[in-house]
């Protein structure tokens, strides 16, 4: 597997973890990984943007614009790794809090659709 060049070592480990964890796929993950390059639904992305503004922007920046040093630069999130995104949202990673229990699967779908817009 070709690792994207932008991923750090810790990100690679998380990717590996995501693959391992996906063996026991929670319902929220099942069957929801789109093929890379699939265009997100505009309506879903709009709802995701609303969630992003209230929950995510405070760390990840306006329109996902961030220096990307402490908070992850979501514009770079690999489009073919939704499972990894879902796990990071549910369980937290590094400074990012775990949002499990506070967001629904639909919420995460909407956020993912917004992430795929890259804030544009």
């Amino acid at each position: 597997m070709q690792w994207p060049r932008s991923l750090s070592l810790s990100s690679r480990l998380l990717c590996a973890l995501a693959i391992v964890v996906a063996v026991q796929t929670p319902p929220i993950l099942a069957g929801q990984t789109p093929a890379a390059g699939d265009a997100p639904s505009p309506d879903l992305a709009a709802r995701g943007r609303g969630l992003y503004l209230s929950h995510c922007m405070r760390c990840h920046g306006p329109n996902m614009i961030t220096p990307g040093t402490i908070a992850y630069d979501l514009r770079k999130f690999p489009a073919d790794q939704k499972d990894r995104f879902v796990l990071s949202v549910l369980n937290g990673k590094g400074a990012m809090p775990a949002w499990g229990g506070a967001v629904t699967g639909d919420d995460i779908d909407a956020l993912w659709a917004y992430v795929l817009t890259r804030g544009k």
Binding site: M57, R58, P67
Partner: peptide, 20 residues
């Protein structure tokens, strides 16, 4: 040790070269 609401909220990419 960089931080603050500005780092997270402002989207100032000039800070990409300041290590946390």
């Amino acid at each position: 040790g960089i931080g603050t609401v500005y780092l997270f909220f402002a989207g100032d990419e000039r800070l990409a070269t300041v290590p946390p």
